[in-house]
Design a protein around this nucleic acid. Sequence first.
DNA 1: CCAAAAGTGTTCTTACTACACCCATGG
DNA 2: CCATGGGTGTAGTAAGAACACTTTTGG
Lengths: 232, 232
Amino acid sequence: MTSRQFSVTVDLAVLTVADDTLKVLVVRRGVPPFRGRWALPGGFVLAREDLMDAARRELVEETGVPLRSVHLEQLGSYGSPGRDPRGRVVTVAHLALLPDLPEPVAGSDAAGAEWRPVEDLLSATRRLAFDHGTILADAVERARSKLEYAPLAAAFCPPEFTIAELRRVYEVVWGTELDPRNFHRKVTGTPGFVEPTGESTRRGGGRPARLYRAGDATLLHPAMLRAPHPVR
Amino acid sequence: MTSRQFSVTVDLAVLTVADDTLKVLVVRRGVPPFRGRWALPGGFVLAREDLMDAARRELVEETGVPLRSVHLEQLGSYGSPGRDPRGRVVTVAHLALLPDLPEPVAGSDAAGAEWRPVEDLLSATRRLAFDHGTILADAVERARSKLEYAPLAAAFCPPEFTIAELRRVYEVVWGTELDPRNFHRKVTGTPGFVEPTGESTRRGGGRPARLYRAGDATLLHPAMLRAPHPVR
DNA sequence: CCAAAAGTGTTCTTACTACACCCATGG
DNA sequence: CCATGGGTGTAGTAAGAACACTTTTGG
């Protein structure tokens, strides 16, 4: 039987919300194929390495971010025979969600790494290398739908955050506007979503906002609603 | 760079509902490792074959079922270094949902293929080969949660089915009892879930039931509720 | 004072639960 | 007639949508 004929890589769709925009970490390819094109960061899985460990290693190499502040999950595998002209490569794509980092990709291995708006990269004109456009689209769709039923939005926020900051995450990722008052009630009323720290902040203009930490829930019940039913 | 060091396989968690039980297709291993143990059907991805094509090929080889009556989706990849004692094998697991087939695995390649209750195989005592217990558990969890928001239950039914047959699928997969009257209203009232054929049948005892086909929706809105809120 | 953002209260409406009730068949 | 399951009606309740209103800061 045919064995050991594949290369296996992990690719990362690393998303963050910065400047009220959903952004993804991309690297400029310095060598063919797709030289000069943007690509998702990634690399080969090592001989004795688990897939998730490989993804974690790549993530630290590319961003220098502490793993405890990151959400990382497997997205899916892409192994179309023609996806890499150099040979048969199956990639296990992962989705990572990060807070907006003050340090711009500190300790980064890849000199050319940049945060770019997802919107720009998903338009048909500015194509990503390989099938990374498909992977990115799948990653964004996964993030969008998972915000509905998992307390994932906090992964885009610093350790302590306000309800308004959390709401901005939803608005940016979903591309919708949400009623601040109903959102506030919904989030604070869903058990395990957020825990108040007792502190306040006045990062914004008006009345100081209370600060919250992520709660211990893994599933939101009831779920957040992305498409409000039209009320006739 | 280390390249071409991996074998890549597809494994299939093929689920069906038969005798009011959730069952999975398993094959008895005839050779070491795990000789004599049950395993999920699967095989190597061919040199020029897409992952989904490989899964489809294996599915037809194992079940002989026409692809148009099957739901097939990628579940996830499993590549722990020690998962196969013979070497480094990454498997891309897939989830398949089938109606209860009258012909018991006709045209099957694997002589030892059998439908076994999922419940039996997930208990700690009767272990599956490799990490197939984990894969099966993930597959069942995926099927359970996806029944909530996708019109997937129809994949377990013949092309035309009654609402009661559809309800049995939910009850068996979720392990719960559902109110037949509310279920009926919910299903027929969710746009795109089912389309009436105009025909009736009297497969059961009492009043003849109308027959339905699967609708064209891909997402159920509102979703089916797995855990009815406790009404205080 | 006003502006701005945080947070609460209230009303309307959707949609789920529970269960009474009727319908259409076989025996 | 009765038994069995199919299907409808309806009351009560949980929770979202819309939006008026109050609170707490800065200027």
